[in-house]
Simulated assay, not measured.
Amino acid sequence: MTDTVNPHRTTVTPRRSRRWTPRTTALFVLGIVLALLTIFPLVWMVTGSFKPADEVNGSAILPAEPTLDNFRYVLTQVPFLRYMFNSFLVSALVTVLALWFHSMAAYALARLRFPGRETIFLLIFSTMLVSLPVILIPTFVVVRTLGLVDSYAGLIIPAIFNAFGIFLLRQFYLSLPGELEEAALVDGASYWRIYRSIILPLSRPILSALTVFFFLTNWNSFVWPLTITSDPDLRVVQLGIATFQQQYASDWNYVLAAATIAALPTLLIFFFFQKQIVESIKSAGFK
Rank of each mutant, 00 (worst) to 15 (best):
T4M: 07
V5I: 11
P7V: 03
R9W: 06
W20L: 09
L30K: 06
G31D: 06
G31T: 09
G31V: 08
G31I: 08
A35D: 04
T38I: 07
I39W: 07
M45F: 05
V46I: 15
P52E: 11
G58P: 10
P63Y: 13
A64N: 15
E65S: 15
L68R: 06
N70G: 01
N70V: 00
Q77W: 04
V78W: 00
P79G: 13
L81F: 14
F85I: 14
T95S: 03
L122T: 09
M128Q: 12
I137G: 04
T139Q: 15
V143T: 13
S151D: 11
F161S: 08
N162V: 04
A163L: 02
I166C: 01
L169D: 01
Q171F: 07
P177K: 06
G178V: 15
A183K: 02
R196D: 06
S203A: 15
F213H: 13
P225R: 05
S230D: 13
V237W: 04
V237S: 03
A242L: 14
Q246E: 13
S250C: 03
Y254N: 00
L268K: 07
I269K: 02
F270L: 14
F270N: 07
F272N: 02
V278L: 12
S280T: 05
S283P: 01
A284N: 08
G285T: 08
G285F: 11
F286K: 03
K287Q: 11
